[in-house]
Amino acid sequence: MKRYLTSIFILLSIFFIFMGIKLDLYWSGIAGWGLAFICLIFAAYYTKYIPNEKKKNKRK
């Protein structure tokens, strides 16, 4: 499940930016970009759980 968290967090950041722009409230844009930035940090963290095919081939 952890290998899919990177794509989930990237999609969440796109959603937050889109909703922050569409709501057109006073702080919604700043809050949307802030949440998107946090999601992108988590996405970068969980890239270490994406399997690397080169490492598997070297072990064989």
Rank of each mutant, 00 (worst) to 15 (best):
C39M: 11
F15L: 06
K22N: 06
F15I: 07
F15V: 02
G32Q: 01
I8D: 10
G34F: 13
L23Q: 09
N52Q: 14
N52D: 15
S13W: 05
I10A: 05
S13E: 04
T47E: 13
L40R: 03
W27I: 08
Y49S: 13
A36R: 08
Y49A: 13
Y46T: 12
I41W: 11
I30Q: 04
E53I: 14
I14A: 08
K55L: 13
K48R: 15
E53Q: 13
T47H: 12
G20H: 03
A44R: 14
I21A: 02
N52W: 12
Y26F: 07
C39Q: 06
F42R: 07
I8N: 09
E53N: 12
I30S: 04
G32L: 05
W33H: 03
K22G: 00
D24G: 04
L12E: 06
F42G: 08
G29W: 06
Y46D: 10
G34M: 05
L11H: 05
Y45W: 12
P51R: 13
G20F: 01
S28C: 03
I30N: 04
S28Y: 06
I8R: 14
G29P: 01
C39S: 14
F37G: 11
A31I: 08
Y49I: 07
G34I: 05
F15M: 07
F15S: 02
F16L: 05
T47I: 15
I50F: 10
G20R: 01
A31R: 01
S28V: 03
L12T: 07
I50C: 12
L12A: 09
I14H: 06
L11G: 12
A43S: 12
L12Y: 04
S28A: 09
L25N: 04
Y46W: 14
A31W: 04
F16A: 02
C39K: 06
G34L: 11
F42T: 06
I50E: 15
K54I: 11
L23T: 08
F9W: 11
G20V: 03
A36N: 09
I30L: 09
A31C: 05
K54V: 13
A31E: 03
